[in-house]
Amino acid sequence: MNIFRLFGDLSHLAAIAILLLKIWKTRSCAGVSGKTQLLFAVCFITRYIDLFLHFVSLYNTEKVMKLIYISASVFTCYLIFFKFKATYDGNHDSMRAEFLIVPAAGLACLINTKFDAIEILWTFSIYLEAVAILPQLFLISKTGEAETITSHYLFAQGSYRALYILNWIYRYHYESHVDTIAIVAGVVQTILYCDFFYLYITKVVKGQKIVLPA
């Protein structure tokens, strides 16, 4: 474990917590893409499938973190699609998730480190996570604005994988550890946030709201 990965995971936890708090406190999921949250839930379940396959003694933090990620993302989907369904902005959350899931699944079968079920699921989860934020960014571009709290969520969510890139550089240099698939997907994922990062740093930090077109 290194500082970059630690802060990356903390940033990821913060993102999940910010979104849950936003929905719970405002009792509304306006401005939140339910499809993105569904895709994240799929990512966690397919990536941490080993938790279900053989019983895990919750002795180490990694197992606990995996359970937190899975339960929090499923609970967020429950809030969006059931509890606060009336506030779900289905008209603007219109990006076809199939256009993300099918290519990720296809690519996972073509480019992977080992052709076995668990590894393919893990690879699918990595590829899907890289594009899972697209419906959320698409929704913001359709509504033309993002609530400040949602911007903080996106900043934390985007920072997590950006910090992981620093973690991979660190591990390459000090542990000569390389996980090419995760690195390439992580770079693509972070690049998708660049436009938002620019808006966040030039606007939200100054207390303004993000309104598109910028």
């Binding site: 995971d9 995996k66 990620y69 480190t113 390459y172 000569s176 996980d179």
Partner: peptide, 10 residues
């Protein structure tokens, strides 16, 4: 560098 056998990251 060696490709990691087990994925040890979240």
């Amino acid at each position: 560098p060696h490709a990691s056998k087990k994925h040890d990251e979240l």
